[in-house]
Computed example of a mutant assay.
Amino acid sequence: MSISTLIKTLPKTELHLHIEGSLEPALMWQLAGKHNIDLPYDSVAAIEAAYQFSDLQSFLDIYYAGADVLRDEDDFYQLMWAYLSRCREENIVHTEIMFDPQTHTERGIGYDIFMPGFLRAIEQAKTEWGISVQLILSFLRHLSEEEAFDTLALAETWYPHISAIGLDSSELGHPPEKFKRVFDKVRALGFKIVAHAGEEGPADYIWQALDLLQVDRIDHGVRCQEDPALLERVKQEQIPLTVCPLSNLKLKVIDDMRQHNILQLLDAGLLVTVNSDDPTYFGGYLNENYEQLHQALGMNEAQLKALVINSFKASFLPETEKQQWIAKVDAL
Rank of each mutant, 00 (worst) to 15 (best):
A153W: 10
S315R: 05
D68Y: 09
V69N: 03
I239P: 01
L286M: 05
L293R: 02
F179E: 00
I165S: 03
S132K: 11
Y41E: 01
K34M: 00
I239H: 02
H161R: 15
Q323P: 07
C244F: 03
H220T: 05
F53I: 10
I131E: 03
Q264F: 09
Q30V: 13
F282D: 03
F282Q: 05
L140F: 08
K180I: 05
N310P: 06
E14R: 00
S2A: 07
L39V: 02
Y111K: 13
G21M: 01
A50Y: 00
S169M: 11
Q292T: 11
P116G: 08
G21N: 01
S4Q: 12
L154Y: 07
E301P: 13
S311T: 08
L60D: 08
D330Q: 11
K250I: 03
D61G: 09
N287H: 10
I7F: 06
G173L: 10
V274N: 06
L152R: 09
T280G: 09
E128F: 00
G33M: 01
Q264S: 15
V329H: 03
A49W: 01
L140E: 04
L27Q: 13
H94Y: 15
K8L: 12
S315V: 00
K328G: 06
E321A: 15
E48Q: 12
Q238E: 11
F312A: 04
K126N: 10
D55K: 13
A125R: 00
N300G: 14
V253Q: 08
S144T: 07
L332G: 06
P40C: 01
S247D: 05
L6N: 05
H104C: 13
E232A: 07
H174P: 04
D100M: 14
V44A: 04
L189W: 05
E73V: 01
T151L: 07
M115D: 07
D184H: 09
L251F: 04
L246K: 03
D150M: 12
P228A: 10
L135G: 04
A26S: 15
P279D: 11
